[in-house]
Design a protein around this nucleic acid. Structure first.
Lengths: 204, 204
DNA sequence: CTATGTGAATTTATTCACAGCA
DNA sequence: TGCTGTGAATAAATTCACATAG
């Protein structure tokens, strides 16, 4: 294996691969070929082999990949080998959905704090997470939580972003349909649901 | 202007551009330069000009783009110039969030049907949409609704997909963390929230 | 003089095709 | 023989640089 920088597009695909391999592993398979994984995920085998080739020789020609080893290695690359805590801001419909979402733990992710401004919600517990007053976002620094999830209404997005950045958050998942402005060292991934839905008619 | 195929990546950016131009237009500006739009959206001006160049000469050198014309034209390309009806399946936390989402109408999109299997939910109204029994998905064909949104739990995703396809749905927004299998003529866009969150630790 | 539109250059990603190993 | 790993070929997207138009 030759060392090379892992392309951004490969990084984007890794979580999907991880999901697929975890599933196949749970089915009791100790090995998986690039073809099998590709069929399961709806991709093609050469893409998978190329992607895997960026970070090591894991496969056995004629056999395939050791699922356990592969899971460990992908987790390591994505830094999912240690548990990360995330803080949710905005416990409305979308925020509640995120809190209740069942599929984070397999990636070593846990939402361990939630904030809202609504006095009715503050103090309540959802999925074992107590909702705190949004003014307490600053406490994230002490609690060593450096991932934030923004699920507040559009007009509160800017202030929420600023509060998270001030609290030392280094990565943000943003559900607001807007460009949030952060220092360069902070990574933002935006999921704009309306934008993806708006793209569908084009393909009709 | 020279005719060329619009690249897929350009199509993906168009809804964002549309959002930005709509905002700037609502502020009372009749013109916008590629630089202004780029600053607002957090991108760069040459990307915007290149993207726009694929579908016409809209700009006036020295001035910029006419916002009204640009909005109309982008809507036309994305086929958002006519109102599209979408059907939501699964009115849990996430489904409710999607139903309550305020940002669809500016794209000419309306969720006009909702389905669930829970008898407690069936018959209730959320955001003026009555929740119907999931067995009635087949009625979408008659109602000329050809966009589906899947917000059901993972184990119900396959059956829901099949029901939507059978009902003549031609485009699907899928929130389930799985590869749903559809005929080639059906377009699927998957939003896997856990996958995007799982990518964040990598950048820490 | 300002901002568009676009060829050309560059970078990045995908696909192919096959050598080489179990 | 079956499947990996990877150079090489191809395709696609981004970035630049500048001629051109108002």
């Amino acid at each position: 294996m030759r060392f090379r920088k892992i392309p951004e597009e490969t990084i984007k695909r890794l979580p999907t691969y991880l999901r697929g391999i975890l599933f196949i592993s749970q089915q009791g398979h100790h090995n998986v070929s690039s073809r099998e994984l590709a069929d399961y995920l709806g991709t093609n085998s050469w893409q998978i082999r190329k992607d895997f080739s960026y970070f090591g020789d894991f496969g056995t020609p004629g056999v395939g990949y050791d699922t356990k080893k592969l899971i460990q290695h992908i987790k390591k690359i994505l830094k999912l080998d240690i548990v990360h805590k995330a803080a949710l801001v905005g416990v409305g419909n979308l925020g509640s959905a995120v809190l209740a979402y069942q599929h984070f733990d397999m990636y070593g992710l846990a939402i361990s704090a939630a904030f809202d401004t609504d006095p009715v919600k503050i103090g309540k517990k959802i999925n074992n997470v107590r909702i705190e007053d949004a003014s307490k976002i600053s406490s994230l620094k002490k609690r060593k939580i450096n991932i934030g999830i923004i699920a507040v209404p559009l007009d509160a997005a800017k202030d929420t972003t600023d509060a998270l950045v001030k609290a030392g958050v280094k990565a943000i998942l943003n559900f607001s349909p807007c460009n949030i402005i952060v220092p360069k060292k902070v990574k933002v991934i935006t999921i704009d649901i309306a934008m993806d839905l708006a793209r569908l008619p084009y393909y009709l």
